[in-house]
């Protein structure tokens, strides 16, 4: 347990610096945007010069850049992300409302890509160089070349427009008053296509990594030893080759999380899933800079947390990790 705690402490300290860079960097980038929140507000509501002056003063936009950055950081310490101009609500509230949908999408897509990808990878890597190995290898490369948003549209054309099996978008049937299991099933049906579109791309990645890892493992001495002990081929493949190839995939799970969050922006907008990614697109369209800043920050925190969880899991799966760090 102490091993995990040391790991968590060290990672959290490092993460604070990284987060600080992210905050300052995005703050400066969004500062460079032409026009401010008041301009965006006035465009939608109208108002005279006096009104503009008043709003700038009330929102603290007439202060120097440095003061505003300090104010923003101070507010962040109190977990206050500020007020959204377009929604006229606290940004924290809006993000917390949208976050569960994105998390559900990401977790399901990860489960699909990791589960099916590693399984197919084991199937291909069990017999290196065989027909099925070559077929899956090329097939996965082709799949990896498919843009997620386009795959989403193709799935919509097939399953929602032609076959009418699945809904075209959204997270659940609106105003259906479903509760409990019926509601869960409804959400599941709505998320089937977005999860497939997001998950299939990364499936190819896990398949290829698994296959490559197994090809490496086949050459190791312990496989020869296992053969010499007269273990069945099935046992060697599953308990020795695949098991050793699985560990790097776990690390990939964390590294991939940032990319998957980015990918969910487009997928959510294709399927009109009201999640964080779609919110980002809405913020861009409405020029709502504080909201965009908040989304980027929350995503960064999310990526850090996911990587922390993955590292802890890795430390438990591979006893070699952390042992040397403890001594150092």
């Amino acid at each position: 347990m102490t091993r995990a705690l040391t790991l968590i402490r060290r990672r959290l300290v490092g993460s604070i610096f990284v987060l600080l860079i992210v905050v300052v960097g995005t703050f400066l980038l969004l500062e460079a945007a032409p026009g401010d929140a008041v301009d965006a507000y006035i465009v939608s509501t109208g108002g005279d010069a006096g009104m503009i002056e008043l709003l700038r003063h009330r929102w603290g936009l007439d202060q120097s850049e440095l003061t505003r950055l300090a104010n923003y950081l101070w507010a962040l310490l109190h977990l206050d992300l500020g007020q959204s101009v377009t929604f006229s609500r606290p940004i924290r509230e809006i993000i917390l409302e949208r976050l569960p949908n994105t998390l559900l999408l990401m977790v399901s897509a990860t489960a699909l890509s990791f589960g099916l990808g590693s399984a197919l990878g084991i199937y291909a890597g069990a017999r290196p160089g065989s027909f099925r190995d070559r077929f899956l290898s090329i097939g996965s490369l082709a799949l990896y070349a498919v843009p997620g948003f386009w795959l989403g549209l193709v799935l919509i054309v097939i399953f929602a427009v032609d076959l009418r099996w699945l809904p075209i978008g959204g997270i659940e049937t609106l105003a259906s008053d479903k509760t409990g299991l019926a509601r869960a099933a409804d959400i599941g049906v709505h998320l089937a296509l977005p999860v497939a579109a997001l998950g299939f791309i990364y499936l190819a990645l896990y398949l290829r990594m698994m296959r490559a890892g197994m090809a490496e493992a086949w050459r190791q001495d312990f496989i020869l030893a296992a053969r010499a002990r007269g273990l069945s081929r099935r046992r060697i493949v599953l308990a020795h080759v695949a098991r050793n190839a699985l560990l790097p995939l776990v690390t990939m799970l964390g590294l991939q999380s940032a990319q998957m969050l980015g990918g969910s922006v487009v997928i959510e907008s294709v399927f009109s899933v009201p999640g964080l990614g779609r919110l980002a697109q809405e913020a861009v369209a409405a020029r709502d800079t504080p909201l965009l800043l908040g989304i980027i920050l929350v995503s960064a925190v999310l990526v850090i947390l996911i990587n922390l969880v993955v590292d802890i899991a890795y430390a438990f799966l591979d006893p070699r990790v952390g042992a040397s760090e403890e001594r150092a």
């Binding site: 987060l19 940032a258 990319q259 960064a300």
Partner: peptide
């Protein structure tokens, strides 16, 4: 690290 923590597509979008 900071650049890798922010989802690349989100950064490009912003």
């Amino acid at each position: 690290d900071a650049f890798q923590t922010v989802p690349g597509f989100l950064l490009a979008l912003a």
